[in-house]
Amino acid sequence: MSLYKIAKNLVAIIFYPLYRIRVYGKENIPKQGPVIICSNHISNLDPPVVGITSPRDIHFMAKGELFEKRFMGKLLVGIQAFPVKRGMRDRNALRKGLEILEKNETLGLFPEGTRSKTGELGDPLAGAGFFALRSNALIVPCAIIGPYKPFRRLHVVYGKPMNIEHYRNSKASAKEAADAIMLEIKTLIENHEAKTTLLDK
């Protein structure tokens, strides 16, 4: 068994009961072909949560500084993470992301680029739009809803794959595509919160 599978199983054993995770729309993630899963970012625990709730193995970007430590670097590579230099256009990271998609694998992205300290959605960076426009990947929006507090319910919602052919054909900018992705995430959050509110009444 790979290190990724071992880590995924261990984290799942701890996180599912600890955060009472409930997953919706897992069937919306295509079983084959290149996929980009784009999620809001409310906690440093978001990558492992998306990782354990997705039926597909995911490659995530991680801060380049983390790879400078020998043990941590090997661990991150073992769980399919790759480095990105924050605050600048990292061509190596962009190239690596495209290579992952060319191999029909799954790339996990947080369009906001950094964790929201308030829980509110932030303005997306162009990165997610770049990968969406430069690949043939299907874009699956993901919403993480709820507090990361022990034994409080955490919801993970996967939406249906986005059709972004219009943006590709119209030569849209990467920022325009990223904005469209964030709008889908926002809609997922609002619709799910509305449903759970009705169920609670």
Rank of each mutant, 00 (worst) to 15 (best):
F71L: 15
V11W: 08
D90Y: 06
D46P: 14
N28P: 11
R153A: 08
N169W: 00
R168H: 12
R168I: 12
C142H: 04
E184V: 03
T53P: 04
L199P: 00
K186T: 09
L3Q: 00
G159F: 04
N191Y: 00
N28F: 02
D179C: 09
L101G: 05
H59R: 13
F110L: 10
L138K: 15
A93R: 01
N191T: 00
P147L: 08
N44D: 05
L183S: 03
I185M: 04
P47L: 12
I52A: 05
K96T: 15
I189R: 13
I185E: 12
E99K: 14
K171V: 05
E102C: 02
I36L: 12
I36A: 08
A177L: 06
F60K: 07
L101K: 04
L18C: 03
T53A: 07
F60P: 09
E165V: 04
R89H: 11
K5E: 13
L199G: 09
L10Q: 07
V156E: 10
I37D: 12
L107P: 13
Y167P: 01
G146Y: 08
E68Y: 07
P48F: 01
I139H: 11
N40G: 06
N9E: 01
L138E: 14
R115D: 01
R152P: 03
L75Q: 00
E120G: 03
R89W: 09
C142M: 08
D90G: 05
V77C: 06
I189E: 08
K195W: 04
G51L: 13
Y24G: 01
E102G: 03
N169F: 04
L183Y: 08
R20N: 11
I21D: 06
M72A: 07
V23R: 00
T106W: 03
F130S: 07
A177N: 04
N28E: 07
P111H: 07
I37W: 06
G119T: 09
P124G: 11
P147S: 13
S116V: 11
L76C: 07
E165F: 07
Y24M: 05
N191C: 01
I6W: 01
I29L: 03
V49W: 12
S116C: 04
V157H: 09
V35D: 10
N136I: 10
F131N: 13
M162L: 15
T106I: 03
A194I: 05
T106G: 03
Q32V: 00
Y167W: 11
P48Y: 14
N9C: 05
L10T: 13
